[in-house]
Amino acid sequence: MTMLSLVERERYLRQIPLLGETGQERLRDAAVLVAGAGGLGSVCAQMCACAGFGKIRIVDNDVVERHNLNRQVLYAARDHGLFKVDVAARRLRENNPWLSVEPVRETITRESIGGLVCGIDVIIDGMDNYDARYILDDAAFGEDLPFIHGAVNGFYGQVSSIIPGETPCLHCIVPHPPPPGDVPILGVTVGTIGSIQVAEAIKLVTGLGKPMAGRMLLWDGLMGEAEVIPVARDPSCTRCNGRGVAP
């Protein structure tokens, strides 16, 4: 691990007291997969770039549309019709010139996931559907990678850190997904949930604090309240293959 340069120390002046130089170096040496470049993905990628993750691979196959702009903070009105990951890569590099950004115009499938997680240290959930989330979850358990689940609906959101060998998998936590389809979303909700997801990623990479493992945070923006509930493994779950936390 090489030391931080003087310019890097200046950039991270206000957070090195929290993370330590070693923690900052660990972030710089870490690669994160931001799966999705929508509401959650925008916030997560932006926060990862600000915090100083060394590499962000961001995956999405959509173009920027006008109705994205209420919550997808990486995009501006002028980006209409451009591929999200291309705009995202430009914006993230503008924020952090040390960052290596790898934009990938792909849909997450059982076929594509192997290449997408190759060389990655943390998977962050920015998806809008459970079919893709379950693919990420299976890859996390297959490759022994932490998977930081987040999802939103209106003023509500949820976060849980899924860690193979320590926690239940997403299939255990959400055995039956809600019906697919567009849900109402506010920018402030993805801002809240995405930021908590990246806080989890920072903690996991630096070793600080206590990850939200085996627990799920349920955010209620209407009440201004969060509650953390325990989540347990399905004893018969074949997906985490006995590697989740003991029931």
């Binding site: 509401g39 998806m127 809008d128 939103v152 609906n153 959101g157 949820q158 697919p180 849900v183």
Partner: peptide, 10 residues
């Protein structure tokens, strides 16, 4: 007893 419908959006 806790009742929660999971969120699905992103």
């Amino acid at each position: 007893v806790a009742l929660f419908p999971p969120a699905g959006g992103g």
